[in-house]
Amino acid sequence: MVDNVTARVRVPREASAGEVVSIRTLINHPMESGQRRDDAGEIIPRSIIHRFTCDFNGTNVIDVTLEPSISTNPYLQFEAVVQESGTFQFTWYDDDGSVYEESADIAVS
């Protein structure tokens, strides 16, 4: 279990219908690669966020597979098109079975 995992997202609060908006996400996570050894010479087991998804009102925006080569505190930036007001749902999937969720509303006019 990884402690102190906090997810943060940056989404515009409002947009016009059909606008493409930029979305950025950050999650605090060590992304232990599974290649490192501890002081005793033992391999430190892999423990990473291996998948991230973003949906808007139930429709998928992006679905990302992450490998151990992704940096500590994974950062992702991408774009979504919004036709109506609604909610972005963000989900991070941890190797240890944990699922971290965050959401953000956007008002579309």
Binding site: D55, N60, V61, I62, I70, E79
Partner: peptide, 14 residues
């Protein structure tokens, strides 16, 4: 996905 606004993404790697 269908709601993507463009076919771009950015991240940080080792």
């Amino acid at each position: 996905g269908p709601a993507s606004g463009s076919r771009m993404a950015s991240t940080r790697i080792r």
